[in-house]
Every structure is written in structure tokens, then in C-alpha cells.
């Protein structure tokens, strides 16, 4: 054996292959957090130690129980009206979950419809629809949300409408791209040759093939919608104050940050945790279902 070969063999032997993780933590943890969110939202009345709107003037601004001067009855402390922060965080899950599910359902349906039509039809219709999509994508939804809050008053419906009005555009762009690609595919040409109607091709051949990317984007969208909803609630353009929502809770603590940081802190952590989980799960799904989407 030559000297150079021996040298090469030694280097290869010295290289330690990295252990591949057997447990997929980047899947399990996000799923656990999101399941917790769903369960918390459903079972909020049983999980929360207090009703979320119950005030107690004697227990105002109590620090979390694990801190100096904390009241053991209030694990995460109380706010300016003496409401239990833990209970409000638990109930806040309901708003985040319901808004995000509803918005995703609406935007995904509308966006898919527009995307398939644009991508499959092509030509002028495609050009016009995509121009509208581009503008919608670059329009700050927050302003429309403020405008709607003025006109309709802040409410659950206003938030959903505001976030849906332009939110479909991301889906439309994605689905349009996929449909455009699929239109050239052999099985679609085949269907066209055998005389399938456009309607049938769109529903039977194109739609099933965009489901994977739709799942990926929808998962990634959970975080986006929750963030947007919390921002609107923070600004007072979201869910009216009597319903506890995480964004509004952060806002409640804004003017008391020098005396009671916990009012703002914990709801923000809840938002961050859920959004992080949604994003991680989305990334994981993308790698599994549709690695081509990595660019998004």
C-alpha cells in the first residue's frame, strides 16, 4: 500500500460521522405545544383557577407567586384590576386559536381558488389576477384593519375580515405557480386530450397536487395570523377588551411596565411559544412534504 493511500485511509478513519438523532424533537415539541394550545382553548374554564374577568381590588399588581412578595394564589401574578394573569393567558388561547383557524380557512380557500384559476387559465386573466395578488401582498393589512375597526367597531368579525382581506394573496401566488407547472405535466395534457373539462381538470388533477404545499403554508401561516391578531388586539383594533386576548394583555401592561413587568411579559411569551411552534412544525412539514418550497 502506498504512503499516500495510507495517509488518506487514516484521515477517513479519523472522521467521525455525526450521530443522527433518532427522536425528531423538531417535530415532537411543536406538536406538543400546539396540542396544548388546542386543549387549553377547549378546556379553559376547567383549567383556569379563576374566571378571566374576575377582578379583585385588594390583589392588584400582585407579583408572580415564585417572586418575592408574590401571592401563592396567583402563579403568574395579577394585573391592574387584580385579575389573575394565568387564567387570562389560558382563556386568551381561545382567541388566538379561533381567529387563526378561521382566517386560514378563509384565506386558503379563496387563495387556492384564485391561484388555480390564474395558473390554469393563463393569459390575460392570469396577468390581472396576479397583479392584484402582488398589490395585496404588499399592502399593510394593519391599516385596513384600523379602518375597519373605525367603521365596524372592533370585534371578532372585524379582525377576521381585516386579516382575510389581503391574506389570500400568499396562497394565490403559491397555488398559481404550482398550477402553472402542473398545466404542462403529462397527466394534465392526457386529461385534456381525452376531453376532460377545464373544471374537471382543475378539481381532479390540479387541486390534489397542490394540497401538500397548502398544508405547509397553512401551518406556517398559524404563527403569522396569531402575530397579526395579537398586534391588532394590542392596538385596540382587535377583540373587544372584555374577552381576554394575549395582545391586549401585553397592552394592558404597557403603562405599568415600571412596576409590574409580568402583566406584559407572560402573554408575550405565550404568543412567542405558539408562533415558534407553528413555524417549526411548518418547516418540518415542508422538509417532509415538499422540499422544493424551501425558498419560502
Amino acid at each position: 500500500m502506498s504512503i499516500e493511500r495510507k495517509k488518506a485511509d487514516d484521515i477517513v478513519k479519523g472522521f467521525k460521522k455525526r450521530r443522527t438523532a433518532t427522536l425528531q424533537w423538531n417535530f415532537l415539541i411543536p406538536v406538543a405545544v400546539l396540542s396544548l394550545l388546542v386543549l387549553t382553548a377547549i378546556f379553559a374554564p376547567w383549567l383556569a383557577p379563576y374566571p378571566p374577568t374576575q377582578t379583585s381590588l385588594t390583589e392588584r399588581l400582585a407579583p408572580p407567586s415564585f417572586m418575592e412578595g408574590g401571592n401563592p394564589a396567583y402563579f403568574l401574578g395579577t394585573d391592574t384590576l387584580g385579575r389573575d394573569i394565568l387564567s387570562r393567558v389560558i382563556f386568551g388561547a381561545r382567541v388566538s386559536l379561533s381567529v387563526s383557524l378561521l382566517v386560514i380557512l378563509i384565506t386558503a380557500s379563496v387563495g387556492t381558488l384564485i391561484g388555480i384559476i390564474a395558473g390554469y387559465t393563463g393569459g390575460r386573466i392570469d396577468a390581472i389576477l396576479m397583479r392584484i395578488t402582488d398589490i395585496s401582498l404588499s399592502f399593510p393589512a394593519i391599516l385596513i384593519a384600523l379602518l375597519l375597526a373605525v367603521i365596524l367597531g372592533p370585534s371578532f368579525g372585524t379582525v377576521v375580515l381585516a386579516l382575510s382581506l389581503f391574506g389570500w394573496a400568499g396562497y394565490a401566488r403559491l397555488v398559481r405557480g404550482e398550477s402553472l407547472r402542473l398545466r404542462q405535466a403529462d397527466f394534465v395534457s392526457q386529461a385534456r386530450i381525452t376531453g376532460s373539462s377545464s373544471m374537471r381538470i382543475m378539481t381532479r388533477h390540479i387541486f390534489p397536487n397542490v394540497i401538500n404545499p397548502l398544508i405547509v403554508i397553512s401551518t406556517l401561516q398559524i404563527g403569522m395570523v396569531i402575530l397579526a391578531e395579537s398586534a391588532l388586539s394590542y392596538l385596540g383594533a382587535g377583540i373587544p377588551p372584555t374577552t381576554p386576548s394575549w395582545g391586549a394583555m401585553v397592552s394592558d401592561g404597557r403603562n405599568f411596565i415600571d412596576v409590574a413587568w409580568w402583566i406584559s411579559f407572560f402573554p408575550g411569551v405565550a404568543i412567542g411559544l405558539v408562533v415558534l411552534s407553528g413555524n417549526f412544525l411548518g418547516d418540518w412539514l415542508r422538509d417532509k412534504l415538499d422540499p422544493r418550497l424551501r425558498q419560502l
Binding site: 401585553v250 408575550g268 415558534l276
Partner: peptide, 17 residues
């Protein structure tokens, strides 16, 4: 990852704190 998950208003308030 963190910047995309944490709400901007919350980070701002925490930075004030």
C-alpha cells in the same frame, strides 16, 4: 427564528423594561 416568532410590540415593551 426568534425574531419571527416574538411579537414586535412585546419586544419593544421588554426593551423599555
Amino acid at each position: 427564528v426568534l425574531g419571527q416568532a416574538l411579537p414586535g410590540f412585546w419586544l419593544a415593551i421588554m426593551s423599555i423594561w
